[in-house]
Amino acid sequence: MPTTEDNMLGSLLTALTAAAERSRSAGRTTSERIRRFETEQLTLHVLAATVVFLIVLPVLIAALVSTKRAGIVTSIGDLVPGGHALSNYRRALIGLEFWRFMLNSFVMSVAVVVGKLIVSLLAALVIVYYRFPYKNAVFLFILFTLLLPVPVRFVPLYRLTTELGMGNTFFAITVPYLASATTVFILRQHFLSIPASLVETAKVDGVGPLRFLWSVLIPMSRAVLVGVSVIMFVYTWNQYLWPLVIINAESLQVAQVGLNLLRGQASTGEVAWSMVMTGSILTLLPPLALLVLFRRQLLETFTIQQK
């Protein structure tokens, strides 16, 4: 009888918890408990602050160096901000045409996010709410692509794109990214937590799947949709290898490749290392801004991958 057993376990747990509560409050005076609580809080804050500091340190160093003239850091003492912030950022954006790289990256990322969202929403909707033959096979097939390493697709995809004459176009840096197993996976996990009875009711009421998606699922999943969009945007914005090989025209190139060009110039001494850091911080700003703006939705989405 599992139910009785559960009940017994439940009441045992409550009794023990109550006992624990009693023994804890009996053992110490209030001031003692507050003091203990305060030390614990202090330790936690110190630990957390150390972790955060170590994590953010490299980015802070980059931001510091981007305000200097030469950008050579040979000792800890060199890590003070310089006075060239404005001129560095102006030169990167206008003189080195970073505005164009960033615009290209931005358009590419938005296009990929919108396309991916539509395709993945349809797939997740079907996988969660419809019973049809080979359903599990379909889901496994989608998941399988998650495991395909990029280089495996690289060689044929390069051939295909160039043979179609799409080598140097906007098309080449968006369409290959539209299919995403990760997004389908996250959306599926989230939809699973929405009761199936909803879709039954909708079916009885004669509401079609697309209408159901639009007026029930999407409003119910706003946070996750925002979170997943941020993940997709950051992922696309950070793409480097594929745009590098498939795009030849510098006017079409994306920020990551532009940044690596700048890095190459710095290695040969054409520009100062501080300019590279300026470019890095510029390239880092959009993902960072999204992270700060949508941190709540993003954290919620990250935890979904688990369920």
């Binding site: 972790v51 955060v52 994590i55 953010v56 490299p58 980015v59 980059a62 950051v234 914005w237 950070n238 480097y240 990551q256 940044l259 690596n260 890095r263 590279v276 850091m277 890095s280 390239t283 880092l284 993902p287 960072l288 999204l290 992270l291 700060v292 941190r295 993003l298 954290l299 990250f302």
Partner: peptide, 16 residues
């Protein structure tokens, strides 16, 4: 939120 910053850092910048 702060500890996911490195996740958002592009690999090129991480490299540099």
């Amino acid at each position: 939120a702060a500890i996911i910053i490195p996740w958002a850092v592009p690999v090129v910048i991480q490299g540099i």
